[in-house]
């Protein structure tokens, strides 16, 4: 794969970290490694090692399967939300950047209104309206990641719209669906992919924050944020409850961002880079 050869070690390590995280989680969940995440199996707040690899929580549930479930929930929620964001932001960005006019103005003003809300305040607002839970978490992630992505897609769409091949397509009598799907979306896909990775890391962060505040994923289901929240009560007596999901959260976000940077460098070559 040419991409792999051209990427630097940082990008590769980001991708590898992410792949390992996903793989371990999938394998752990599918094969039920460590047992049932909901079952109260052992002593309360047992330290890591021995029978319970990552210890147990305050109810005696084994942390390892709960961590698998937590990573799965967090990644799944964030990924689904970001996919929705990607579709919506692409359409809105193209509407604003290619069609423009009053439609573009309306889209961009709405996006700016969303953008002006502090992240967590917006998330709490959504949770208050929709009720805490997975749906509220996803909605929050979508609303928080849409503005930036729409703006970036719009900026790219403006430049792509001016390209001669778009004009050529118009001349050859192409209707808007063909111009949209054949020319605009493929030429914006790099931008969308890069923004998608950044949105994914924001999504994970929002899930963590919202669940930590108690508006996100509700017990007994676990997520990275929920695990940290539940463990924070026992921070002094059982620090592993917080440290392990905390590290996983940091690694996931770091890996996604580093991979996103590499993706951007590969897909959107800048003049500054080509001069080096």
């Amino acid at each position: 794969m040419t991409w792999w050869r051209e990427s630097d070690w940082l990008t590769r390590s980001g991708l590898v970290c992410l792949a390992v995280l996903v793989l371990v989680t999938v394998v752990g969940t599918v094969f039920g490694i460590g047992g049932d995440p909901g079952a109260m199996v052992g002593p309360r707040l047992a330290p890591p090692g021995g029978e319970y690899l990552l210890g147990t929580d305050q109810l005696g549930r084994s942390m390892l399967p709960r961590l698998f479930e937590g990573i799965g929930t967090t990644l799944l929620l964030s990924t689904l939300a970001v996919l929705v964001t990607a579709v919506l932001a692409t359409l809105l960005g193209i509407a604003a950047g290619y069609y423009g006019g009053w439609l573009g103005e309306v889209v961009m003003r709405l996006v700016e209104v969303l953008y002006s809300f502090p992240t967590i305040v917006l998330a709490i607002l959504v949770a208050a309206v929709a009720g805490p839970g997975q749906a509220a978490t996803m909605c929050s992630i979508i609303l928080i990641t849409i503005p930036l992505m729409t703006r970036v897609v719009r900026a790219s769409a403006v430049t792509v719209a001016e390209r001669d091949y778009v004009t050529s397509a118009v001349i050859s009598g192409a209707g808007w669906p063909r111009i949209l799907m054949r020319h605009l979306v493929p030429n914006l896909s790099g931008t969308i992919a890069v923004q998608g990775t950044y949105a994914l890391s924001v999504g994970i962060l929002v899930e963590g924050g919202l669940s930590f505040l108690g508006f996100g994923v509700q017990p007994p289901q676990s997520s990275l944020g929920a695990l940290i929240q539940q463990g924070s009560t026992y921070l002094l007596t059982a620090p592993w409850l917080v440290i392990v999901p905390g590290i996983v959260l940091i690694v996931a976000i770091l890996a996604i961002n580093v991979f996103g940077d590499g993706l951007r460098d590969g897909l959107e070559p800048r003049e500054a880079r080509s001069l080096v």
């Binding site: 390209r163 001669d164 091949y165 004009t167 050529s168 397509a169 001349i171 054949r182 020319h183 493929p186 030429n187 896909s189």
Partner: peptide, 16 residues
Amino acid sequence: LGYVFQEPIGSLDPTM
């Protein structure tokens, strides 16, 4: 109508 533009590479879609 048919159009030919100044920048040859730019008048072709790079993704196709």
